[in-house]
């Protein structure tokens, strides 16, 4: 079943002013329940605007957003309920921390949702566990944490609301490769354990490629592609035309293909490329299918 459906969604910033700018035009697609969907596009492609539609922070200029089959703007007064069901982690979420302790900050969302003390406590600890924040850190002030820990605390604050859908907008921006990998694997674990729907927005293909079931490619406010990672990446040339950068390893395979060597260009990782080359060499090594 689809959790979120966008029906012909169009959005215009500053309608009727001299700053008018169309950010989305005629976007339609559905996100399936339990799916891990990657959303990519260059800056200004409309990807961030699109995901802000899903929890009702922005209202479509025309078209509808359905959550579990129901138009979220049917009763505009109840839009807050949608925000508890669709959790949204913004870019640089650590900039939203404000409470005296990390624990209190994470419980801000659950309390707004109206959870009991007991339930809040359970959710806060659970969320902290998902992002690898220790008991010790929960007692600290959020401003004493390191950059990576702050980011985790902020993400925990959204996870603790126990949303059906979790949206993360560039969660790894500004992190070093080590921090990036750790955070991504925490998100994957969360998705596996909770089995809920996750939308990950990024302009880094490397991040998205390995972990998404499907990838939505946005370009100039329109849906450009929506397919499995392999199928998307085998269209490297198309992606580059949209100003997106494919992983270096995919690029290598594209170059080999251009030079008349028949390799699969839909590779996403070094390991996959390694196996692909080995099978081309018809070599002794493991030629197992990945």
């Amino acid at each position: 079943m689809s959790v979120i459906t966008a029906e012909n969604v169009t959005f215009t910033y500053g309608k009727g002013t001299s700053f008018e700018r169309t950010a989305l035009s005629g976007v339609s697609f559905s996100v399936e329940e339990g799916e891990f969907l990657g959303v990519i596009g260059h800056t200004g492609s409309g990807k961030s605007t699109l995901v802000q539609m899903f929890n009702g922070l922005l209202r479509p200029t025309s078209g509808r957003i359905l959550l579990n089959g129901k138009d979220i703007w049917e009763q505009p007064k109840k839009i807050r309920e949608v925000r508890f069901k669709v959790g949204m982690v913004f870019q640089y979420p650590e900039h939203q921390l404000f409470e005296e302790t990390v624990y209190k900050d994470i419980s801000f969302g659950p309390k707004n949702k109206g959870m009991s003390e007991e339930e809040t406590d359970k959710k806060v600890r659970e969320a902290a566990g998902f992002v690898g924040l220790s008991e010790e850190l929960l007692k600290k002030s959020p401003f004493e944490l390191s950059g990576g820990e702050k980011r985790r605390a902020a993400i925990a604050g959204v996870i603790a609301m126990d949303p059906d859908v979790l949206i993360l907008d560039e969660p790894t921006a500004g992190l070093d490769p080590l921090g990036r990998d750790a955070l991504l694997s925490e998100i994957v674990t969360y998705h596996k354990v909770r089995k809920n729907t996750v939308l990950l927005v990024s302009h880094s293909m490397e991040d998205i490629a390995r972990i998404s079931d499907r990838i939505l490619v946005m370009n100039n406010g329109r849906k450009a592609m929506l397919d499995t990672s392999e199928n998307i990446f085998s269209q490297g040339a198309e992606l580059e035309k949209m100003g997106l950068r494919v992983p270096q390893i995919t690029k290598v395979m594209m170059l080999l293909k251009q030079r008349g060597i028949s390799v699969n260009t839909g590779v996403l990782t070094v390991e996959q490329a390694f196996q692909e080359i080995l099978s081309c060499l018809g070599c002794c090594g493991e030629t197992k299918k990945w």
Binding site: P247, Q248, I249, K251, V252, L255, V270, A273, F274, I277, L278, L281, C283, G285
Partner: peptide
């Protein structure tokens, strides 16, 4: 870099390859 790692891995299997490559080309 991914290309560097790929060549390194292939060398590990005993293939004749340059010691280090930097970019995709």
């Amino acid at each position: 870099p991914q290309g560097t790692e790929l060549v390194y891995k292939l060398r590990g299997c005993g293939f004749e390859l340059p010691k280090c490559v930097l970019d995709e080309n």
